[in-house]
Computed example of a mutant assay.
Amino acid sequence: MSDETDEKASGRRFVVRELDPRCFVVDDTATTLSYDMRFTRQVAQEAADRRNRRNAV
């Protein structure tokens, strides 16, 4: 996906990727689509975590 994804997130379906210094998106590794454009990494990570929780159920 991207250099921004770390090893512990490699098993997750939704991961955070940085587009620009203040622009992050949540990528779906299964469909290769991007969701939730955000301005901070923390908020993007929270969105990715929320999607991963929904996907796990």
Rank of each mutant, 00 (worst) to 15 (best):
A56I: 03
Y35C: 00
S2R: 03
R38V: 02
R22E: 14
T31M: 11
E4D: 15
V57F: 10
V57G: 12
R53S: 15
T5A: 11
T5F: 09
L33Y: 07
R53W: 13
V16D: 00
R38L: 14
E4K: 07
Y35F: 15
K8V: 08
A56Q: 06
V25A: 03
A9E: 07
A56V: 03
E18P: 01
K8S: 13
T40L: 02
R53M: 14
T31P: 04
T5N: 10
L33Q: 11
R22S: 13
R22N: 13
D27A: 11
C23T: 09
R50S: 15
V57R: 12
Y35T: 01
T5H: 07
Q42I: 13
V16T: 00
S2W: 01
D36S: 10
D6F: 05
T31V: 14
P21K: 07
E18G: 04
E46H: 04
L19T: 06
R50P: 03
F39V: 09
R12H: 15
F24I: 03
R22Y: 12
Y35K: 00
V43Y: 10
A30L: 14
V16H: 00
D3N: 14
R51P: 05
T31F: 11
N55A: 10
R13D: 10
E46M: 09
R51G: 03
R50N: 13
V15H: 03
S10L: 07
N52C: 11
R22K: 10
N52K: 04
V15K: 04
A56K: 13
T31E: 14
A47Y: 10
C23I: 04
R53L: 15
D6H: 06
Q42C: 11
Q42S: 14
R50M: 10
F39N: 13
V25N: 01
R13Y: 12
R22W: 11
T29G: 02
M1F: 05
L19S: 04
A44S: 04
D28A: 11
M1V: 06
L33K: 12
S10Q: 05
R51M: 13
N55D: 15
T31I: 07
S10R: 08
D27E: 13
E7D: 12
D27Y: 03
R50K: 15
D20R: 03
E4H: 13
R53C: 12
V15F: 04
S10I: 03
D49G: 02
T32L: 12
D36P: 02
A9Y: 07
R53D: 15
A47D: 09
V26H: 00
V15R: 07
E4R: 00
R13W: 10
S34F: 11
R12M: 13
D3Y: 12
R13Q: 14
D6Y: 06
L19R: 10
E7G: 04
R17Q: 14
D27S: 08
R51A: 09
F14I: 03
D6R: 05
Q42P: 05
E7V: 06
M37E: 08
R53V: 14
V57L: 11
G11S: 06
Y35Q: 00
E7I: 05
S2G: 09
R50I: 05
V15D: 01
R50E: 15
E46P: 00
V25C: 00
R12N: 08
D36F: 05
A47P: 07
A44P: 02
T5D: 05
Q45M: 12
A47M: 14
D27H: 10
R13M: 06
